[in-house]
């Protein structure tokens, strides 16, 4: 304390920032180690999305008509989004677990940057999502998915999905902090995810849904992201979609990340 007091305020801020990043990386590393070691988290982030690709490509896909594209090209952008969205449940479960096993209590008694606990977890989720998206792209290519709009547009689309997923992680961390245990964290997450994932343009054209559902399905953020990704992967006009997708992603991040951080600070 005495050494900090003597330092120039700017130097303190700089030190604080360096410390935040180094603590964040330590927490990130810890979460990534757990991810690789836990069979269930490996399942949810690799086997399950692969199963969804195969399910929709070979089981349901034949019965779904999409105008202008082969179904697998229509499907893959939806799968990308669904995979990262379902993955964000892991954020809430992991945080709830840390909270109730006393790990957060320990973190709070350490001379570390407190905000690094949430930042480290969401950053670990971001890295996991990069790996998962690469895996799913490869699986997609194996089952006939073709990138029509050029590799850079496609990679740009994946970056959009990653940004949106990062915002979702912060959102779902709030559920982790509110839930009384890990099971409840899971139970609280899915009723939110299911309508957003399935009443969207991810797997079927919105036009095939009943009229009362179309308004929601066409404009909700998951559809916006899928439409943007689809344009960046299959070609077609992209600008409107991309701007809307960016607005949603930054909007969620700006609205929910500070709320999560405050909730974390006040959760004791």
């Amino acid at each position: 304390m005495s050494t900090i007091a003597k330092m120039h305020p700017e130097a303190v801020a700089q030190r604080g920032l360096r410390r935040f990043f180094s603590d964040m990386l330590v927490v990130t590393e810890r979460n990534l180690i757990a991810l690789v070691r836990l069979p269930q988290s490996l399942f949810f982030s690799s086997i399950q999305p692969i199963m969804f690709v195969l399910l929709f490509r070979y089981v349901f896909g034949g019965a779904i008509n999409v105008p202008g594209h082969s179904y697998v090209d229509f499907l893959m952008p939806g799968i990308f989004l669904q995979t990262v969205a379902f993955g964000s449940v892991g954020t809430s479960i992991g945080l709830a677990e840390d909270l109730h096993k006393g790990l957060i209590e320990r973190f709070r008694s350490l001379p570390m940057a407190r905000s690094a606990v949430l930042a480290g977890r969401t950053f670990a989720d971001l890295i996991r999502n990069i790996g998962v998206l690469i895996l799913i792209t490869l699986v997609g290519l194996l089952v006939g998915f073709r990138i029509q709009a050029g590799i850079f547009a496609f990679l740009g689309g994946l970056l959009l999905i990653l940004l949106f997923a990062y915002a979702l992680s912060w959102g779902f961390s709030i559920i982790g902090l509110l839930a009384p245990n890990t099971e409840t964290a899971q139970v609280m997450s899915f009723p939110l995810l299911f309508p957003l994932t399935f009443a969207s343009s991810a797997f079927v054209p919105v036009q095939s849904m009943p009229g009362w559902l179309q308004g929601f399905a066409a404009n909700q953020p998951f559809s916006v992201l899928v439409d943007a990704m689809r344009a960046l992967s299959n070609g077609g006009p992209t600008e409107g979609y991309v701007v809307k997708a960016l607005i949603w992603s930054f909007g969620i991040l700006i609205a929910l990340a500070p709320f999560a951080a405050r909730r974390f600070r006040n959760s004791f």
Partner: peptide
């Protein structure tokens, strides 16, 4: 509660 990370 012996606050250790079980997966580490």
């Amino acid at each position: 509660f012996a606050a250790v990370d079980e997966n580490l």
